[in-house]
Design a protein around this nucleic acid. Structure first.
Lengths: 173, 173
DNA sequence: CAGTAGTTTCAGTCACCACTGTAACGCGCC
DNA sequence: GGCGCGTTACAGTGGTGACTGAAACTACTG
């Protein structure tokens, strides 16, 4: 019963795939990253990480719960978060009542875009700050430093994403 | 006693400067931004915001505490955080034992650089993920999507910051 | 229409963290 | 060399938020 230990992963039969332990360690790193970057709670982060490497790529809430060792109730909340963030998509199979979840087509570009937009949103704050103290006052100098940086940053990211879009369009378009 | 209400701000005498309330509202917006972006606690964020607009630009811990309405003990912790992050610098005056704090010369570039470096650090995770599942396996496709995006992002930010450095060198160098 | 699998909701629990007040410590002035 | 201002360390507190278990709800099957 060798296949017993590897469970549902067809590819692992007789192969040298990663152990469940290695997979969960990696999942944890993914969760850690999204916790720091996007403020994602641990369980949504783990579910996301798991959906990046699981086989099959579509899994039910119960399967996800078992995989990452969380309660099904937690998975409900986690999946709501991931659905709202555009990370995962629900999928239904004919004749089954179970909802399967899978990674969205390409959530990463949008998510990263939003992330950088949030970064440059400080521009609005510095702008208001300059108005507040008076743009020509001595106090404005401190604000102007940040304001210039973020203004420049804002002017860079637009063209940058256009380059990405072009690159992607050229590859699969 | 008109100057009484405006306190220590010399520029405000007879002028139409911002009210303390307006200033604190702006400080709160700054704190909110750094809370979301850098995970800064409220008080360090407020101290940082206040140091961006206060007059004089150098203030003691006690002055900062009074300005943002926090305890002096909290300011100790907050200033440690801000010092460690490179946001503020201590300053000593001859014949005085008080330490005055002021905004660092230009903390923003470094902070933002680190922020973006943290973003692209996901590259190491995806790299390891590809190794884990095998780069040529079917499962790798999901990881490769992110990997390509972050690889590209990483290749963009280097030149981007070089442009910023050049721009800055050209302006004040 | 009863039974069942799956999902969602909700109240409760637990841990964590920021913040405060107090007490100790260090260091320049008289 | 004592005194006082300023800073630091620490225990206590309040609040927030993630997570769980159990109950309620929905939809499908026989």
């Amino acid at each position: 019963m060798v296949t017993e230990t590897t469970g549902t992963w067809g590819w692992a039969v007789g192969g040298a795939g990663p152990t469940r332990e290695q997979e969960l360690a990696w999942v944890e790193r993914v969760a850690g990253f999204f916790a720091r970057q996007n403020g994602l709670p641990p369980i949504p982060g783990r579910a996301l990480g798991w959906l990046m490497i699981c086989d099959p790529p579509e899994q039910s809430a119960a399967e996800l719960a078992a995989a990452i060792g969380a309660s099904r109730a937690s998975l409900t909340t986690a999946l709501q978060v991931l659905l709202a963030g555009g990370f995962v998509e629900p999928h239904h199979r004919a004749g089954e009542r179970t909802t399967y979840y899978r990674l969205a087509d390409d959530p990463w570009t949008d998510v990263t875009r939003r992330r950088m937009a949030a970064l440059t949103s400080f521009l609005a704050v510095t702008e208001e700050g300059l108005d507040l103290v008076g743009a020509d006052s001595a106090r404005a100098e401190r604000i102007r430093q940040v304001h210039e940086l973020f203004g420049w940053l804002d002017s860079e990211v637009g063209p940058m994403w256009r380059r990405w879009d072009a690159r992607r369009a050229g590859r699969d378009g």
